[in-house]
């Protein structure tokens, strides 16, 4: 749940990058860290473990300011994808304002993708998040690899859900910002309903999205 401190004119928003193991969640954050203007971002906090696997989470804080003087803090988290770390995923997911689901495009990973997505839905329920209204974007990563699921097929799969779908090669920075902007839009729409962002706080969508500026 976004935290709004009107006295300090501060809005804190949490977005979680979810998905199966090794699908590129941390890579997304690393790329954003590199792309986004240094003055708008903090340091990428990773808890390094052997073999480049996320054991707890990664955190990238971002910061924006509106013309009305509102500070918008966005905290990007990743979860550990490995099945065994379900309790950690649950803890990190709690009170999130939006989720980017990073799927692995490789055909061999489709089962893992759906297991992880079901896990997301389950954990959202467990921490009291209404999954139906949760701002969510699906990113199909690793588009540069062979034997990957067809773009048309992916769009067909998700068409019914109305969840925005992005395609990316995070390792080369492609589609990373687009995914981020897409989830920011979803989050903005959701928060606008809850907090009356546009007319009440005078935070426009453009200003909100400017957090992602390069």
């Amino acid at each position: 749940m976004a935290e709004l401190q009107t006295s300090e004119k501060k809005l804190t928003v949490k977005i979680v990058y979810y998905g199966p193991a090794l699908s590129g969640k941390t890579t997304n954050l690393m790329q954003l860290h590199d792309i986004i203007l240094p003055r708008k971002r903090g340091e990428l906090m990773t808890l390094e473990t052997s073999g480049d696997r996320t054991l707890f989470f990664d955190l990238l804080p971002l910061m924006g300011k509106t013309s009305e003087g509102y500070k918008i803090k966005i905290k990007l988290f990743t979860v550990p994808g490995q099945v065994a770390h379900d309790a950690t995923r649950k803890a990190v997911l709690s009170r999130t304002d939006g989720v980017v689901f990073v799927a692995d495009s490789q055909l061999t990973q489709s089962v893992n993708n759906s297991i992880s997505f079901e896990n997301l839905e389950k954990n959202a329920g467990r921490v009291g998040i209404d999954f139906d209204t949760l701002p969510l974007v699906v990113q199909y990563n690793k588009r540069d690899l062979k034997d990957i699921i067809d773009e048309k097929e992916v769009r067909g799969l998700w068409k019914q859900t109305h969840i925005p779908v992005q395609f990316s090669t995070a390792i080369h920075g492609q589609g990373v910002k687009e995914t981020f902007v897409s989830v920011l839009k979803e989050v903005y729409r959701n928060l606008n309903q809850k907090l009356n962002m546009e007319s009440g706080l005078k935070i426009t969508e453009d200003e909100f999205l400017s957090v992602a500026n390069m």
Binding site: E3, T12, K14, K75, F77, A91, V92, S94, R95
Partner: peptide, 8 residues
């Protein structure tokens, strides 16, 4: 607790 450490 989470609020303390993760969100604040």
């Amino acid at each position: 607790e989470i609020a303390d450490h993760l969100n604040d």
